[in-house]
Amino acid sequence: MDFFVSLLYSLPGAISQGLIWGIMALGLFITFRILNVSDLTVDGSLATGGAVCVVMIRAGFNPWISILCAFLVGGVAGLVTASLQTKCGIPAILAGILTQLALYSVNLRIMGGKSNQPVSVDKYKLLVSQRYVRELSLRNPIPLVVIFIAVLIGVLYWFFGTEKGCSMRATGVNKQMARAQGINPDNDIILGLIISNGLVALSGALLAQFQGAVDVNMGRGAIVIGLAAVIIGEVCLKKIKGNFAFKLFAVVFGAIIYYLVLQVTLQLGLNTNDLKLISALIVALFLAVPYWKGRVLPKKGGV
């Protein structure tokens, strides 16, 4: 009984975390699923977003301006990775790792040399905070994040229906076909990585406010969590046929499920030190299952 009470008690927190990470997962969806690029920049740009936002809020800036700036700086990080890929011929994964590594130093610089910086809801006006997560009031972070995500999904749905968005989708599937249609794939990769990392940084900015602090290591393994969200969402909702907006919704749904499952395992007494190991295992498993199915099923059909 105690187990369920404490689980219920921790649900709102898990859901809000899932929602905030959902924004990050939407960013990852753009690179991973639409552009077909594995972008490892995100581990760095998530913390960059948090750092920019917290430092600005502490300096007295409006939180909305702060998250906007976090988005823009994250976009610059994406631009750097995209330039390493398209202008310097560095393979996508390595380009992401290089930027991610460089961002570690950059993030420390942004935070004035400290590896973490608090931003207390008592002292500053924040958009979202963990403290009010169980409160039935306007201060509760969940409604705001839900609206945020709804707007984001709307904007992304619109964008990928435009000429530019279609060009990006074409680039992600078949570069040669895109080139034959007069599309320069490099431009699409650059724009895609900018938007993606902007969203990741935005998510980091909200996450830092939610937790009341930014840590230079907060992005470690972020790509795994984002991928987990994308994949879990697809697997859980694959039975439902939906349009592109629904696919985006599934990504956020996946992030929430991820945090709910995590919460349950934590409640079952799991050591928090093992979290990353388990996250990695979950993602590996979800990626492997479709591959195994593809290899086993044709044989069965032959018998």
Binding site: F159, G161, T162, E163, K164, C166, S167, A170, Q181, G182, I183
Partner: peptide
């Protein structure tokens, strides 16, 4: 996609 060869692809539907 093909009909827009040689045109700027913008934010029009």
């Amino acid at each position: 996609l093909a009909a827009r060869r040689g045109q700027k692809r913008g934010l029009k539907w």
